[in-house]
Amino acid sequence: MAEELMENENQYVIFRLGRENYGLEISTILEIITMQTITEVPGTEVFIEGIINLRGRVIPVFNLHKKLNLAGGETTRSTRIVVVEVRGNHIGMLVDGVSEVVKITEEIVEQPSGILSDLDEEYLSGVAKLEDKLVILLDVTKVLQRGNGALLENIG
């Protein structure tokens, strides 16, 4: 799938998680909303923050900090919930702030191997070298799948 994406120019939404910049392909994103009251669901995995009401629809919210083992993650004024669609399911992901939408071409994307040491490369589809920053391109399906294989099986 990653190869296909990079054949052409693609638009990515860039957001911050801790000190790093991440990118998600725009077509996977349904909307970006401000922080909401999240209802905790007892007995679920730590990276599941809880559930929210998205216009009458109950959707789960995912804590990317906890999922990717990153430091920080405190809720601030810039905290946003990025709502993505994975195999027909709407899922929210907590991020530290959304900065911009950029076009990324294949040429500036490198395979993740060797660039990042501590981040699990399996979540990534690549690393884009923009003029002023590095953007880690996330593969949302893989992020939501890791450790939850069975759950996503269910979704599919």
Binding site: T37, V41, T44, I51, I52, N53, P60
Partner: peptide, 25 residues
């Protein structure tokens, strides 16, 4: 429902949206 992503949770059968827009289990 809590959705397939969250799945079955012990002691909880689902969720509902309250008058104030918040979600209750």
């Amino acid at each position: 429902t809590l959705g397939k992503y969250i799945g079955d949770v012990q002691g909880i059968s689902g969720a509902t949206i309250l008058g104030d827009g918040n979600v209750a289990l």
